[in-house]
Design a protein around this nucleic acid. Sequence first.
DNA 1: TATGCGTGGAC
DNA 2: TGTCCAAGCAT
Length: 364
Amino acid sequence: MKQSEQLIKGFDAKQFQHDLISWFEQEQRILPWREDQDPYKVWVSEIMLQQTRVDTVIPYFHNFISKFPTIKHLAEADEEDVLKAWEGLGYYSRARNLQTAVKEVHETYGGIVPNTPQDISKLKGVGPYTTGAILSIAYGVPEPAVDGNVMRVFSRLLSIWDDIAKPKTRKLFEDVIRLVISNENPSFFNQGLMELGALICTPTSPSCLLCPVREHCRAFDEGVQDELPVKTKKKANRILHLAAVVLTDEQNRVLIHKRPEKGLLANLWEFPNAEVDTEMNLDQERLQMYVKEAYGAEVTIGDSFATIQHIFSHLTWKINVYEGKIMGSVQEDDKLKLVTFEELEKYALPVSHQNILKAYRSYE
DNA sequence: TATGCGTGGAC
DNA sequence: TGTCCAAGCAT
């Protein structure tokens, strides 16, 4: 017998569905992506919500949908504008993958988001969770949508002690959900689980006394709700020292560089910078030579006017920021541009470089 | 399978 | 202040 079948023995799935869905009908938050079930809007919201809080997403969702109201609008948009709309939201490959996938839907599926797990999960950026979320919410298909909430809620409900940080564990929860999901209302079932995880069955100090499915919960019964789920820690991040320079010419245009199309902050724009060891951080002469080599620009480096720390999830940047002047001419191309500070507002910058810009403005 | 990939909020 | 995240996916 499969582990999932073993786990749900004695679990009253029908009653649970009813209790969960009734609670969701009463208590669900009013959210912009819940106003209709437009598959495109459901899709956009699900991508934005990956590893990102609801409160953070709301303004981005409004702005994004107003700029790109339909599949066609997004498919035909400039990537630069899409990234600008994503600026500050993080995990920028989500934006580029979304546009790639939307183009695919526009061209291959006539602008209709596919409604089978096979087709939809082939789309760039659409993994197992998003597949289930779109299918259940937009199309009413009873497919599991297992995210962190669902694993937390069900690890407590069924007292499951598998490590939810392990990729393999997600499959166990998918098996479980397939056995207990509501076929009548998979949309509210899946959304109800996530809403419950967000509002009641929280990572720390869950509100068990307010929980609509407390009677189904083995962890509450056993008093171990604070010990579940089991989740191993990630390893600590590393520190990288950078020197960055805000380089201006005699017309007060500033030099910006487009980052590589893969990896960290892919395709976003930045001020010229280099990794340094802590010692070299004060060496203006070497920074000047580096800029000449890497960007082909003849410059003089002035004073360091700020140090900026930026903490990523897996990395910390400590950036020493200099001002500098461009002496000769610069060969511009699609990855290197001289722009006015007004034009700069059209380009998507990572938050770290937005902070460099702020520091420069207050220094000037 | 483990790691890289952002950001801002909660405690 | 440091730690842990929050509706994951690609490689």
